[in-house]
Design a protein around this nucleic acid. Structure first.
Lengths: 163, 163
DNA sequence: TTTAATCAGGACATTGAGGTACAATTTGAA
DNA sequence: TTCAAATTGTACCTCAATGTCCTGATTAAA
């Protein structure tokens, strides 16, 4: 019986969580600093090889710039600081990830709804509003003040790249 | 690259969705009617063999009674009508499924929080409140009025068991 | 020009959720 | 007593998400 031993998804995939954490971490660095995948993975305590793929994806979506070769690494794209979490999730979860019916019906709209639809809709909207209102920059600053943590380790360090 | 082709989970696993749908469907039947797994699966348009496992699980959690042999089937347990969705999800998602940090941190509480914690917490509470307030019986009645749909097919039929 | 460091990308391994198949068991009815 | 119909339980299959590994391309510095 493989039921009820679930991985506790609740909204965001592991991939999306890594993506958001990484974006925040990169945004915490000075703008002229290029950060290594290795350092990001270390600081966030996530698997480096997998994180590399996620970062690659964020590059394709123009949220990060990557530099190859010696002294290479990643840095925030010019517009990424103002990017909100919905924009990040658009890349990692795919478009329309917030459209789904709570009970899984293929058709579930105001016209033809599941019995949870009416009460679920405003909550879903609140989630979307929250994710849309939080920018990468804003979250990075929140962590820098020391009030919040990013990784499981307390006190994520600034630096770990080369200028 | 297998990223961004996700299955659009958003909160509930397929298993949980099946469980809730099935509970509502069974609750729509007259109390002395025993419903066949086959009929539930047909009406809800979900795979019967898998649904059987989910139902089995709901029996272990005392939300359903099952009767074996000829004229066997499932019916609501004595208390299940008053059961709310959190109680169903407790079985399918496991305990503590609503505890997790949005960004995936192992440690994320009021004392040591991720940068989303403060704003996420009230929304999570709203979700929990909603799921706690909706009982199986209430949802079943809502579908019976015809205002809401349960399955992808419009108009789920009552009956399909034997008394 | 060589070398070291870094990302890019493909191939592969692992894991768990979702799904299928079938034998064992129980039970009502002929 | 026998049989058919039903659940139970177990074992397996499939697939996508996650994670690992390795080779190649690229670049700066020695």
């Amino acid at each position: 019986m493989s039921l009820s031993k679930c991985h506790l998804t609740m909204i965001l995939s592991r991939t999306s969580q890594y993506a958001i954490q990484a974006m925040i971490y990169v945004a915490m660095q000075p703008r002229d600093v290029v950060v290594l995948n290795r350092n990001i993975a270390q600081q966030l305590n996530v698997p480096a090889a997998y994180l590399a793929k996620v970062l690659q994806h964020l590059c394709k979506g123009n949220l990060l710039y990557s530099y190859r070769g010696r002294l290479g690494g990643f840095r925030l794209s010019d517009t990424a600081g103002k990017a909100n979490l919905m924009q990040v999730l658009l890349l990692t979860e795919g478009p329309g990830f917030a459209e789904e019916c709570l009970l899984g019906l293929k058709e579930c709209s105001d016209e033809t709804a599941c019995p949870m639809h009416r009460r679920w809709k405003p909550i879903k909207q609140k989630i979307i509003d929250l994710l849309s209102s939080q920018t990468v920059e804003k979250l990075a600053r929140a962590v820098q003040t020391g009030k919040y943590r990013l990784a499981d380790l307390p006190g994520v360090v600034i630096g770990g790249g080369h200028s």
